[in-house]
């Protein structure tokens, strides 16, 4: 067997890596360092900023007004992840084990909405939940409500829009994990006298954990930082961290506080992911 991987640094390797280092260094890393620096600065009333070491922007987060928004964001993101899992797992399971020759078509049908614009998908819910829209008509038709009720601009509307938008992110990794599964293991479980639920809980589910972890991360991150969906479906009643950050940069022009919120969001999210992976076991991620 010949040496397939070149070892050590060479001129060729440096040439291959130079463009990405420059681009991501200059337009990803440096901007992040800028907001870290700005987050310790002081904003003046004209929207300018004085650099320094002012921890005040981070302390402001503990104002109950802001704390409520941040806690709400993470709560909605966690709920979205849970609902996506509860809907996505049976679906992925169905496609892999019962899909038979329609398996590829069925998974493609999950991917199509994932490829279409998020903005358009959110707009669809604005139409459905808004005014005396289809959702209200259905509720009245089913006799659940007498007249139109307010459905849009509620936390539930945001939850609905987020679940709708991020469900494919959960199904795809679950599908990938279950697809690799060796069915003989289930048969072995059955032969040894385990019931279907026992086989599922003790064999199938533990082996699909890498997909569960990957799916949860893929849903949780964009949900916690979401800005468009609460903006269109939540209104002023369901402000999330993303909206708060946007507001600091484009309306209040308090860039120092906005930067602190952004840094905090990134740190909290990355911390949550690391904790989650540690907790469930990083070895399980390897198959994902």
């Amino acid at each position: 067997m010949r040496e397939r991987v070149a070892k050590g640094w060479s001129l060729g390797l440096a040439a291959l890596l130079a463009p990405v280092t420059l681009w991501l260094g200059l337009f990803f890393l440096v901007p992040l360092l800028f907001i870290v620096a700005f987050s310790f600065g002081t904003s003046d009333v004209y929207g300018g900023i004085t650099l320094g070491f002012n921890p005040g922007n981070y302390l402001r987060v503990f104002d109950p007004l802001y704390l409520e928004i941040i806690v709400r964001s993470f709560g909605i993101a966690a709920l979205t992840t849970l609902i996506c899992f509860l809907l996505g797992y049976p679906l992925a399971y169905f496609i892999v084990f019962k899909g038979r020759r329609w398996r590829n078509t069925l998974i493609l049908l999950v991917m199509v909405p994932f490829w279409t614009s998020l903005l358009i998908r959110a707009y669809a819910w604005v139409v459905i939940l808004g005014g005396n829209g289809i959702a209200n008509k259905t509720l009245q038709f089913l006799g659940l409500t007498d007249g139109p009720v307010n459905l849009i601009f509620t936390p539930e509307a945001v939850l609905m829009g987020m679940t709708y938008s991020y469900l494919p992110f959960m199904v795809l990794p679950l599908y990938a994990a279950l697809e690799k599964f060796d069915v003989r293991l289930k048969e072995a479980g059955k032969d040894l006298g385990a019931s279907r639920w026992q086989t599922f809980l003790r064999v199938t589910f533990p082996l699909s954990l890498p997909g569960v972890i990957a799916g949860s991360i893929l849903v949780f991150i964009p949900s916690a930082g979401e800005f468009v969906i609460p903006d269109l479906l939540g209104g002023s009643q369901t402000v999330m961290t993303g909206n708060l950050i946007q507001n600091q940069f484009l309306q209040s022009r308090d860039w120092a506080f906005g930067s602190a919120l952004s840094v905090l969001l990134a740190v909290l999210l990355l911390g949550a992911i690391m904790f989650y992976i540690r907790r469930v076991g990083s070895d399980k991620l390897e198959g994902a």
Binding site: F27, F28, P31, L32, F34, I35, I217, I221, P222, A224, G225, F227, G242, I245, Q246, F249, G258, S259, S262, V263, L265, A266, L269, L270, I273
Partner: peptide, 11 residues
């Protein structure tokens, strides 16, 4: 994995 909003405001 960096949240889009963080990438947006930092840029």
């Amino acid at each position: 994995v960096m949240p889009e909003i963080v990438v947006g405001v930092s840029l």
